[in-house]
Deep mutational scan, measured.
Amino acid sequence: QVNIAPGSLDKALNQYAAHSGFTLSVDASLTRGKQSNGLHGDYDVESGLQQLLDGSGLQVKPLGNNSWTLEP
């Protein structure tokens, strides 16, 4: 069960990665100043990332080996 409060997208993504045990490689300029609506409930990694990114204009991309990145 994930419980991440709304706020900074950077912070939300870092909390989610730490909670879910995956690696997220992101260029900080992509997420700077963006906000997230947070995340509450049970999600697989990709669904949770998509939910956190909702409205940010960013997309999640798998890199393999439980690693992910973001792209515009």
Results as ranks from 00 to 15, higher is better:
Q1E: 11
Q1I: 13
Q1Y: 15
V2R: 05
N3F: 14
N3C: 15
N3K: 10
I4P: 00
I4V: 05
A5P: 14
A5M: 10
A5Y: 09
P6N: 04
P6Y: 04
G7D: 06
G7Q: 10
S8C: 14
S8N: 10
S8I: 06
S8R: 10
L9D: 03
L9M: 04
D10M: 13
D10F: 13
K11D: 15
K11F: 13
K11Y: 13
K11Q: 14
K11L: 12
A12F: 06
A12Y: 02
A12I: 09
L13D: 01
L13Q: 01
N14F: 14
N14H: 13
N14K: 15
N14M: 15
N14L: 14
N14R: 15
N14T: 13
Q15F: 08
Q15K: 07
Y16T: 03
Y16P: 01
Y16S: 02
A17K: 07
A17N: 03
A18K: 13
A18V: 11
H19E: 14
H19L: 15
H19M: 15
S20F: 15
S20E: 13
G21L: 03
G21H: 08
G21E: 06
G21C: 12
F22R: 02
F22T: 05
F22P: 08
F22S: 05
F22Y: 01
T23Y: 11
L24F: 10
L24M: 08
S25V: 15
S25H: 15
V26M: 11
V26Y: 15
V26Q: 03
V26C: 11
D27N: 09
D27L: 07
A28Q: 11
A28I: 10
S29N: 13
S29H: 11
S29T: 11
S29G: 10
L30W: 03
L30Y: 06
L30M: 08
T31C: 08
T31W: 01
T31I: 14
R32V: 11
R32L: 12
G33P: 00
K34V: 08
Q35H: 13
Q35E: 09
Q35R: 13
S36Q: 08
S36G: 02
N37F: 10
G38C: 06
G38R: 02
G38L: 03
L39A: 04
L39D: 02
H40R: 13
H40T: 11
H40E: 09
G41L: 02
Y43M: 07
Y43A: 03
Y43S: 01
D44C: 08
D44K: 05
D44T: 12
D44W: 04
D44E: 08
V45M: 07
V45D: 03
V45C: 08
V45W: 12
E46G: 11
E46I: 14
E46V: 13
S47H: 10
S47E: 12
S47I: 09
S47G: 10
G48D: 02
G48P: 01
G48S: 04
G48L: 05
G48H: 04
G48M: 05
L49K: 00
Q50V: 12
Q51W: 07
Q51S: 08
Q51K: 14
L52I: 09
L52K: 00
L53E: 00
D54W: 14
D54A: 15
D54G: 09
G55K: 06
G55E: 03
S56Q: 06
S56F: 07
S56A: 07
G57E: 05
G57F: 05
G57Y: 04
G57D: 06
G57Q: 04
L58N: 00
L58K: 01
Q59F: 10
Q59T: 13
Q59A: 11
V60C: 14
V60L: 13
V60P: 15
V60F: 10
V60T: 06
V60D: 00
K61C: 11
K61H: 08
P62A: 14
P62F: 15
L63C: 12
L63W: 04
L63V: 09
L63Y: 06
L63A: 09
G64Q: 05
G64T: 04
G64S: 06
G64E: 06
N66E: 06
N66Y: 08
N66H: 06
N66M: 07
N66A: 04
S67A: 12
W68Y: 14
T69N: 04
T69A: 12
T69I: 12
T69F: 09
L70K: 03
L70M: 05
L70T: 04
E71N: 02
E71W: 06
E71P: 00
P72T: 10
P72C: 13
